[in-house]
Design a protein around this nucleic acid. Sequence first.
DNA 1: TTTATAGTCTACTATTATAGTAAACATACT
DNA 2: AGTATGTTTACTATAATAGTAGACTATAAA
Lengths: 158, 158
Amino acid sequence: MRLSKRGEYGMRAMILLANQKAESDIHFMQIKEIAQREQIPSKFLEQILLTLKNAGLVNSKMGVNGGYYLSKPANEITLGQVFRVLDGPLAPIRCVSQMAYEPCGCPDEESCGLRLVMLDVRNAISDILDNTNLEQVAQRVENVRNKQPSLNPLNSDF
Amino acid sequence: MRLSKRGEYGMRAMILLANQKAESDIHFMQIKEIAQREQIPSKFLEQILLTLKNAGLVNSKMGVNGGYYLSKPANEITLGQVFRVLDGPLAPIRCVSQMAYEPCGCPDEESCGLRLVMLDVRNAISDILDNTNLEQVAQRVENVRNKQPSLNPLNSDF
DNA sequence: TTTATAGTCTACTATTATAGTAAACATACT
DNA sequence: AGTATGTTTACTATAATAGTAGACTATAAA
């Protein structure tokens, strides 16, 4: 589980799209606007959104006033899904991956200490990302924005 | 958190060294032997062990009957330490890294939804790797080996 | 004191992933 | 018809990964 730039940009774009959806029901958001608001190179973002579209997570409309939008309600898209599309398996090592298992070459997988621990890690990651959807993230963002208008910028609990 | 081949090989070597230490008090284990038992290219393993030595996690003795051994008791070396030496920060993204923080370029870090979630992920990973030491891994391996003597047909103990 | 053994160090290579850029093309609204 | 938008293909530069090769150095036993 390491987030590449592609993954980071794609996740941020999806979260932004989820926020938009909450505001007006179907808003076509253009690459240029997303790129500007999230500080992402727009040509790179183009590739990323295309990948997400091919995976069925977003749709788009061409032409004037076109743009991108989530293909499903925000609460039906998990961060795990987005991550897997852009950065592959959640597992830190293939021998504990659910979606892309491969033997790693250790002499005995059953009693491989590394594998036992990494399986725990994979499950911990999955517990978070597969159980967090875009709506929940958008909600968290809003909570932070509302609850602290002017307190200590380093403190995130109040 | 993604384990490279370097990381995987290094972790497996460390776990093997931890097992050896339990058996005879100071046993110098040679690169060749580790490479053979763990199926690791020995020239690559050489580099990895050197890195671990420079980080102070193992020591070595040159010459006839030389080899490598853990520089500290197995219960004082965590998987987190080994991982960081070979594969860098645990965090999936730099903006939530404790050891190698860097801003990621989002417009407002405080209210970045991605960052909030990734911080949870980082902490979940750290909870496991920074609280698991080589002795515990060795113990887990032994438990598996003892408790299932003949279930797995690939088991090489019989 | 020679010799075999074992780690050390410096270079080099091949492949893949990352992070883009550029330009032609297709579609849809006015 | 023209313009704004997404689509597709092709290209590039840099870095990381996964090694390999070979010379060098230290140790201990014969």
